[in-house]
Amino acid sequence: MPDIIQDAKTFRADRAWGARDIARIDGASVRLHWTDQPYKWHVNDGEEVFVVLQGVVDMHYREYGAEKIVQLSPGDMFVAGKGEEHVARPIGEARVLVIEREGSV
């Protein structure tokens, strides 16, 4: 029987960037995150896909040493490649689907 997620719009974790595991697919994790606080600057050991489901997120990243920012709204996606430094900073509450290598930061 398939899993049906009907509360993605109302999911709330007990802490910023708390998550619900949705699926594991061939070494990748799919997680629903809730947050109202920035994450931390980090680099992943593989690609990471962010899909903003609700809220607005300013995604900061470094390109050739210069900090850049792109604002993501519901339905927008951001793909951080392996080794690309980035940090997500929500404006208020946000719900974000994240797909990344299992065990990644």
Results as ranks from 00 to 15, higher is better:
1 M>I: 15
1 M>R: 15
1 M>H: 15
2 P>G: 12
2 P>S: 15
2 P>H: 14
3 D>I: 15
5 I>G: 07
6 Q>Y: 10
6 Q>M: 11
7 D>C: 02
8 A>E: 10
8 A>P: 01
9 K>N: 14
9 K>T: 12
11 F>S: 02
12 R>M: 11
12 R>L: 09
14 D>N: 12
14 D>F: 02
15 R>L: 08
16 A>W: 03
21 D>V: 07
22 I>T: 01
23 A>W: 04
23 A>T: 08
23 A>I: 03
23 A>E: 11
24 R>F: 06
24 R>M: 08
24 R>K: 14
24 R>Q: 11
24 R>P: 00
26 D>F: 03
28 A>I: 05
28 A>K: 14
29 S>Y: 06
30 V>D: 07
30 V>L: 14
32 L>I: 07
34 W>P: 03
34 W>A: 08
34 W>L: 04
35 T>S: 14
35 T>F: 01
36 D>F: 06
37 Q>H: 14
37 Q>Y: 08
38 P>V: 04
38 P>N: 09
39 Y>H: 13
40 K>Q: 12
41 W>P: 06
42 H>R: 11
42 H>Y: 04
43 V>L: 07
43 V>K: 13
43 V>N: 10
43 V>R: 14
45 D>S: 11
46 G>M: 08
47 E>V: 11
47 E>K: 12
47 E>P: 13
48 E>I: 01
48 E>C: 06
49 V>R: 02
49 V>Q: 03
50 F>M: 05
50 F>H: 06
53 L>C: 00
53 L>Y: 02
53 L>P: 01
54 Q>P: 03
55 G>V: 03
56 V>S: 06
57 V>R: 00
57 V>E: 00
58 D>Y: 09
61 Y>R: 08
62 R>P: 00
62 R>T: 10
62 R>Y: 08
63 E>I: 05
63 E>C: 08
65 G>M: 01
65 G>W: 05
65 G>C: 02
67 E>D: 10
67 E>L: 05
67 E>G: 02
67 E>Y: 04
68 K>V: 05
68 K>Y: 11
70 V>S: 04
71 Q>I: 10
72 L>V: 03
73 S>Y: 14
74 P>W: 07
74 P>E: 05
75 G>L: 04
75 G>A: 09
75 G>M: 08
76 D>P: 05
76 D>H: 11
77 M>V: 13
77 M>L: 12
78 F>K: 01
79 V>K: 09
80 A>S: 13
80 A>V: 00
83 G>P: 07
84 E>V: 12
84 E>N: 11
85 E>Q: 10
86 H>A: 04
86 H>Y: 09
87 V>S: 05
90 P>A: 05
91 I>A: 12
92 G>D: 08
93 E>V: 01
93 E>F: 02
94 A>D: 00
94 A>W: 00
97 L>D: 01
98 V>N: 01
98 V>S: 00
99 I>D: 00
99 I>K: 01
100 E>W: 05
100 E>A: 12
101 R>D: 09
101 R>I: 13
102 E>F: 06
103 G>N: 10
103 G>P: 10
105 V>N: 11
